[in-house]
């Protein structure tokens, strides 16, 4: 198998969402001597980029994306414990959650999986998360990004409290706030002073990458 083609089976299994096939291929690659970080960086991340592209092209929808992301995570679970602490495979830490008062999690879960698939370490606080908790966790975990989701028009307004809380903690410019969810849009994100808005889980990766670049440059 050519060097470029050695990841084909793994990537196709992730795109097809075949969890068992991903697990067996990851094990095979490890036995064949592939480095854990290469499996992630060269095998898994490009597959999830492809999944994002298929979503944006309208070939994949949320269910297909979820299934691919779940398969990727199964592979990741095998590889991650094998990484040496010195190996840098994590782009940055992201604190993620659904805003207080809101119990919806599908969008947040999908964003979490896509970010993980793009090399981020995701700290998922779940649903119904108080604004301060996002910021407190970001501080404790030295996270670069906070991702806030809302599905209700009645709860999304509370996203601005996360932005305020970041400012009050003196983290503006150091920790970026990314917002999303069905009723959220660019205009709303700007109005509340969020650093980024993503209309879907695939875009969330792009926005997170771009935001990270700006923060690092700050």
């Amino acid at each position: 198998m050519s060097a470029a083609g050695q990841w084909d089976v793994l990537q196709q299994a992730i795109i097809d969402g075949k969890t068992a096939a991903v697990e067996s291929e990851v094990r095979r690659l490890l036995e064949a001597g592939a480095a854990p970080e290469s499996i992630i960086n060269e095998g898994m991340i490009p597959a999830m980029i492809k999944v994002g592209e298929l979503f944006e092209e309208g070939q994949f929808f949320v269910p297909e994306m979820l299934i691919s992301a779940r398969a990727m995570r199964a592979g990741l679970a095998i590889v991650k414990p094998l990484l040496r602490s010195t190996e840098k495979v994590t782009k940055a830490k992201v604190v993620l959650g659904t805003i207080q008062g809101d119990l919806h999690d599908i969008g947040k879960n999908l964003v979490g999986m896509m970010l993980e698939g793009a090399g981020y370490e995701v700290i998922d606080l779940g649903t119904d998360v108080p604004p301060d908790k996002f910021v407190q966790t970001a501080k404790e975990q030295q996270a670069s990004l906070i991702g806030v989701s809302a599905l209700l028009t009645t709860t999304m307004i509370r996203m601005q409290d996360v932005v305020r809380s970041v400012e009050q903690a003196g983290l503006k410019g150091k920790v970026g706030v990314l917002v999303g969810g069905a009723p959220v849009n660019e205009r709303f994100a700007k109005e509340i002073g969020a650093d980024g808005y993503a209309p879907n889980a695939s875009a969330a990766v792009r926005v997170a990458d771009s935001l990270l670049g700006k923060l690092k440059g700050a």
């Binding site: 269910p63 979820l66 299934i67 779940r70 599908i106």
Partner: peptide, 11 residues
């Protein structure tokens, strides 16, 4: 649950 429902539409 929305996530389970989404997965179940395929599986």
């Amino acid at each position: 649950g929305a996530t389970s429902l989404a997965l179940a539409t395929v599986e």
